[in-house]
């Protein structure tokens, strides 16, 4: 848009309730649109400028800092109930720029750009010299640990065969020598006990996602694996208003068409074996 001489922005306190409202809408937008990793929560509002918008409304130009929580992105737990990832677990932060339109009392996200980055190794060492740092997700040990854990889980499962969706976090622990991994899975149309070729299994139309935590411990002459998975109820996903005014396809997955349950279930159910 051409620059309009004399157009000035309104200065607002970063902790002003109106700014916070806009920032919370921005964080909700992140959690509703990101399809990998963990939910984020608001940590600090860095800057805010409020521009008049023609013919009506105002645009909040925001810079915000977020922190990673321990809730997987497809976990239906409200982010307010999610625990913030602590420094000793190697916290991850997000730096975001947003433009949020306020019109008729309603906030709508017009623009979003976020970068996330883990805390520095030095910072983690300061608070916990012995704590393991985040490991690359393609590390050989990480990939092996996930494969072993998922196989163990499927072997003990008397239901669907679960396929790997993503590895979301990993740490190499020196003592005892072990690999800690967190990964997401999804149910397929195969029965776990009858699978011969996992490549032929297809994800269910009505997706059921799960989130697993596993530790693979190296031992003399072998290894031990412990894995626990939390399965999430299939969640109906509502279309989100988009910047161009159109209704987007569902955020998480267009194949999810399950109507909302009459009696909403608990946020998550722990099912499946602990191996």
């Amino acid at each position: 848009a051409p620059h309009i001489p004399g157009l000035v922005y309104r200065e607002l306190d970063c902790d002003d309730p109106e700014t916070e409202q806009a920032a919370l809408v921005a964080v909700d937008y992140i959690n509703n649109h990101v399809l990998q990793g963990y939910k984020h929560t608001l940590n600090q509002i860095d800057k805010v400028k409020v521009w008049p918008r023609r013919p009506m409304g105002e645009v909040f130009e925001l810079e915000i800092d977020t922190l990673e929580t321990t809730c997987y992105i497809r976990d239906p737990t409200p982010v307010a109930n999610c625990t913030v990832r602590q420094l000793m677990e190697h916290a991850v932060e997000g730096d975001c720029d947003f433009q949020v339109l306020k019109q008729d009392g309603q906030f709508t996200v017009l623009f979003a750009k976020c970068d996330s980055s883990p805390d520095s190794a030095e910072d983690v060492r300061k608070v916990c010299p012995q704590c393991p740092l985040l490991a690359p997700l393609n590390d050989t040990k990480v990939v092996h640990a996930v494969e072993v854990a998922l196989t163990a889980f499927n072997t003990q499962s008397n239901g669907s065969y679960f396929q790997l969706v993503e590895v979301s976090r990993a740490q190499l622990v020196p003592l005892p020598p072990s690999t800690y991994v967190e990964f997401a899975v999804a149910a397929t149309d195969c029965v776990a006990a009858e699978v011969t070729d996992p490549a032929k299994c297809n994800l269910l139309a009505e997706k059921q996602y799960g989130f697993c935590k596993a530790t693979l411990t190296e031992k003399v002459g072998g290894e031990d694996v412990a894995v626990t998975c939390t399965m999430f109820q299939t969640q109906p996903v509502l279309p989100q208003p988009q910047p161009d005014g159109t209704e987007a396809s569902p955020v998480a997955d267009s194949a999810v068409t399950a109507p909302p349950p009459a009696d909403p279930p608990a946020a998550a159910l722990v099912v499946g074996p602990v191996v």
Binding site: L12, D13, C14, T19, T41, N43, K47, L67, D119
Partner: peptide
Amino acid sequence: NVAQPSVPVAAGPVVRPCPGRIRHFKI
């Protein structure tokens, strides 16, 4: 009469509108 010399009134704390408060911890 002894008059108390006028003491300049200290200005109130300067409010920095931004950045806002840290809700958890700063990385």
